[in-house]
Write a protein that binds this DNA or RNA. Structure first.
Length: 327
DNA sequence: AAGGGAGTCAACCGCGGAGGT
DNA sequence: GACCTCCGCGGTTGACTCCCT
């Protein structure tokens, strides 16, 4: 392979950085309808100005329906410690033992939390553990490490109970949390997208919900509205398989033209709808938008100073009602 | 109130492996 | 076997928030 690696995509024509809500919706909608047999061609087919790898990453780490959000439980942390002791930095392998958890998430938890915790433990101990970052050389060492693992786990449980979680806006805690999870310890810088994405993927999807869902009794999300939303998504198919490149180009032009005219107002409408769906407004969205912490945070978290860059984002466009939703 | 350091995490980058031609 | 494409993985980065001074 002496020619060097060809770039996976034209770096000058793809958008980088955080995903916008519209991009997420577009990706979710496309994958729901067409699957993801070819990541490389997916962005083009879906009308996304993203690298295929970026789409894949976003899907796997965030948008996938079965991805589990929220704090790692002590049991999960225990598992990670054990598996890391066995496999080393084989995050995907570790992730395969933790349903719903992604390798990226596990890697982050390890690097930012567990690793330091174990280091502290090691330093504080009179008889330092022989723990190392490298994988054990034989399977027998897994067994021999069991006791030490359990010791670490005890420490882990104790510390996790003692830690005071950083407060996250209440609504973000609710909608970003898997129902069985503990509250998220910290708010992510990009938790805007994580929140609503999890809302769609973990809460709102009809196949995931057997009836009205109550999360800690705080928000009751009507099943029907979610079905409506997903049915609505189902009706959206601006990317028919017969689409030609030219058609896609025309679609993009049309989207851009519309969003230039209406981007900000329509974004507000869309956000209001989202908040109504989440039960965060009492019918008059605008009042609550300014008076509650969580909705203020929602605006902040969603980067709600719409930055409409020509040819970049395709914000969802609401007309007078959600039924006129289009991307 | 302002500033800086620490912590967190989503996203990017580059590499290697698998599979096809 | 050489070359190519695509996917997946692991390391790293950068943006953001929180907390302390």
């Amino acid at each position: 392979m002496g020619r060097g690696r060809a770039p996976c995509c034209d770096k000058t024509k793809v958008k980088k950085g955080p995903w916008s809500p519209a991009e997420d919706l577009r990706l979710m909608s496309f994958i729901q309808r067409h699957g993801h047999s070819n990541w490389r061609s997916l962005p083009k087919q879906a009308g996304l100005l993203r690298c295929g790898k970026s789409c894949r990453l976003r899907w796997i780490n965030y948008l996938r329906p079965d991805v589990k959000r929220g704090n790692f439980t002590p049991e999960e942390e225990e598992t990670i410690i054990k598996l890391h002791n066995s496999f080393g930095n084989k995050w995907s392998r570790i992730a395969s033992h933790l349903p719903g958890r992604t390798d990226n998430e596990i890697k982050n938890v390890w690097n930012t939390n567990l690793k330091k915790r174990l280091t502290r433990k090691t330093e504080a101990s009179d008889s330092p553990m022989e723990y190392s970052d490298s994988p054990s050389s034989s399977s027998s060492s897994i067994t021999s490490n069991e006791d030490r693992n359990m010791e670490m786990i005890d420490q882990t449980v104790q510390e996790s109970g003692a830690r005071k979680p950083n407060e996250k806006p209440e609504f973000l805690k609710v909608i970003s949390r898997h129902p069985s999870d503990e509250p998220k310890e910290t708010a992510s810088s990009d938790s805007s997208t994580s929140s609503y994405a999890s809302y769609f993927c973990n809460v709102a999807r009809p196949e995931d919900i057997k009836g009205p869902t109550t999360l800690e009794g705080k928000i009751e999300i009507p099943f029907e509205s979610d079905i409506d939303f997903w049915n609505l998504l189902d009706t959206l198919d601006p990317f028919q398989s017969t689409n030609t490149e030219q058609n896609e180009c025309e679609n993009s032009k049309a989207f851009n033209a519309v969003e230039k005219l209406d981007g900000e107002d329509e974004c507000r409408e869309w956000l209001r709808y989202l908040e109504n769906e989440l039960g965060l407004t009492g019918g008059n969205g605008s009042d609550n938008l300014q008076n509650t912490d969580h909705t203020t945070s929602l605006h902040q978290k969603m980067n709600f100073e719409p930055e409409i860059e020509p040819g970049m984002d395709y914000f969802p466009i609401w007309s007078s009602s959600p039924q006129n939703f289009c991307i």
